[in-house]
Design a protein around this nucleic acid. Structure first.
Lengths: 186, 186
DNA sequence: CACCAAGATGTCAGGGACTGACATCACGTA
DNA sequence: TACGTGATGTCAGTCCCTGACATCTTGGTG
């Protein structure tokens, strides 16, 4: 069903990230992004709910990876094992080909409060979804909330490390180390 | 040094929360808030960086309570004990007199994505500050990050429970139960 | 081929958030 | 009383975001 120039949304995302890295998020106007993608400001808002969202589109796929992994975990798994399964389910997304893009994206996010704010919201949504998935597997509150937060904590730290300069390990290896460190805390 | 009507900032906060609860955050304009406080829109922005911040002013005091509690914890405390100390240090803020205001405030926040977003950012800032405090006490990464996240997780869940309808326990009792549940996970 | 349905885009007008610049006003002090 | 200082008011302007309507491209239908 693709009509027109088929890459409109992706063109906008690439243009936006380029401009954010070049001159910052605040200093970049939506009209500017749209112009670089040969589109109009109004069209930008047909693809993304707001200016921040251009860097966060597709997070629902990641969320479903978390949730599905919990749902498909073996019977009798403990809350902690379910949480670890959730994080492991996300590992498939962060391949080596994706790493350069993720690095640039993270660089843009970390330098702007407005973007960090949106990232925090997305992490919170992830935690809520995992908590609900745990409840669906019979985990009771407040253990479900705490286990979900623990999972998102490992995911967040692992992602930051995965995009750190010079890091070459896969995200799954990083996550395994973090789960061990988390267990060692208790 | 107080001149004019001394309660300008507080008047704005009260007016804002009233209006947010009455008609929602989005439907309330800054001019409306300022008008109810007998002030101007421009003056609102001299007290608060943006429309959301009117509900989050003063969070730095809470942050310092977390950080100071970590700094003042006894020598030889484990990372987990330091994290528990951080959370305990916040307990003094959430007295019974403050609970009605906190309830109304949380009610307003939970119904609007824009406000939940800001709350997430503040929680993230709290976690970062606690992580830094742990590093200052000699805890190494990634344990510092994970322990700080665990502390904020307990704090967040305890706060939600503390403002839940019908809840009468003090926040410290709630937090004690949550720490126990968190330890039981591992 | 002419025509139509539908989805994607463009155009325009407008409200509201936020900011910089400048004027004004109330208070403390010399 | 005159002055300095800080809080407030006024005004203009930019940018974010949205609703309404027109236009275009594409694929299908007769």
């Amino acid at each position: 069903m693709a009509r027109w120039e088929p890459g409109a949304k992706q063109r906008l995302q690439l243009a936006a990230l380029d401009l954010f890295v070049e001159q910052g998020f605040e200093a970049t106007t939506v009209a500017e992004i749209a112009g670089r993608a040969d589109l109009t400001e109004r069209t930008f808002y047909r693809h993304f709910a707001d200016k921040r969202e251009v860097l966060f589109d597709g997070q629902d796929v990641l969320l479903h990876a978390f949730v599905d992994a919990v749902a498909e975990a073996p019977d009798g798994a403990s809350p902690r094992e379910l949480a670890e399964a959730a994080v492991a389910g996300s590992g498939a997304f962060f391949t080596d080909e994706r790493r350069p893009w993720s690095r640039r994206r993270q660089q843009a996010i970390e330098t702007e409060d407005g973007l960090r704010e949106r990232e925090s919201l997305k992490m919170g949504a992830l935690a809520s979804a995992v908590a609900q998935a745990l409840r669906d597997r019979g985990v009771t509150d407040p253990a479900a909330e705490l286990a979900a937060d623990a999972a998102i904590s490992v995911f967040r730290v692992s992602f930051v490390q995965w995009v750190a300069p010079g890091e070459t390990r896969g995200i799954r290896d990083i996550q395994a180390d973090l789960f061990a460190a988390q267990r060692a805390l208790a």
